[in-house]
Simulated assay, not measured.
Amino acid sequence: METNRLSPTLAQALNKQMTNEAANAQIYLAYASWASEKGYDGIANFLFRHANEERNHMMKILEYILKRGAKVVVTEIPSPGPDPASVNDCFEKVFTSEVENTSAIYRIVEMSMAEKDWATWNFMQWFVKEQTEEETLALDLLSKIKVAGGASANDDALYILDKDLAQTADDATLAQDVSAANP
């Protein structure tokens, strides 16, 4: 009896996204290691936590593929690329990576809608919200770095930023969650 409830195109797209999430975990892991080596323990801790979060995203997709009766295909993860040149460069790269990931998720949402696979469409809504949080968080970090001096931030500003990121929550406040009474 056939138990697969994913089309070949959606199964392939979800497997590809699973690999994207694993690659993003590697990016965060590489950048966290770089930050730690540079003495930015707060930034490193923040990035290590996000590496774990990306691995959790990967597992969430893997489990979904299995529960829909499709085959999980584990493939090679691309290299995270060169180390960042600076803290500013690090978070610019993080933001770029998150925007690319959002685009990939939107493609799966579009595919699931076109195929009328409402289970997958519903499943992907969690990722849509998560990517909104990830992009907002990355933008907030870029704003902090900009205030600290951007690419020209001095050691004192980076020290304060590092201490601040050690305390920064892993979630961002989203626009849809605020109001005039609760900005």
Rank of each mutant, 00 (worst) to 15 (best):
T3Y: 07
N4F: 07
N4S: 11
L6N: 00
S7R: 05
P8S: 03
L10V: 11
L10M: 12
L14D: 09
N15C: 09
K16F: 10
T19L: 10
T19Q: 15
L29G: 06
Y31N: 00
G39D: 11
D41A: 00
L47Q: 05
F48Y: 12
H50D: 05
E53Y: 09
H57G: 03
M58H: 07
M59N: 07
I61R: 01
K67G: 07
K67V: 12
V74F: 09
V74R: 02
V74G: 00
I77Q: 08
S79Q: 03
P84M: 05
A85Q: 14
S86V: 08
D89P: 06
C90H: 11
T96C: 00
E98V: 00
T102A: 05
A104Q: 02
Y106T: 13
R107G: 11
D117K: 00
W118I: 10
W118G: 05
T120S: 10
W121D: 13
W121F: 15
W126G: 01
E130D: 08
Q131D: 14
E134W: 09
E135K: 01
T136M: 07
L137M: 10
D140P: 07
L141C: 05
I145Q: 06
A148V: 04
A151D: 11
D155I: 15
D156G: 03
A157E: 09
D162S: 03
D162I: 03
K163E: 02
D164N: 03
T173I: 04
A175W: 15
P183L: 07
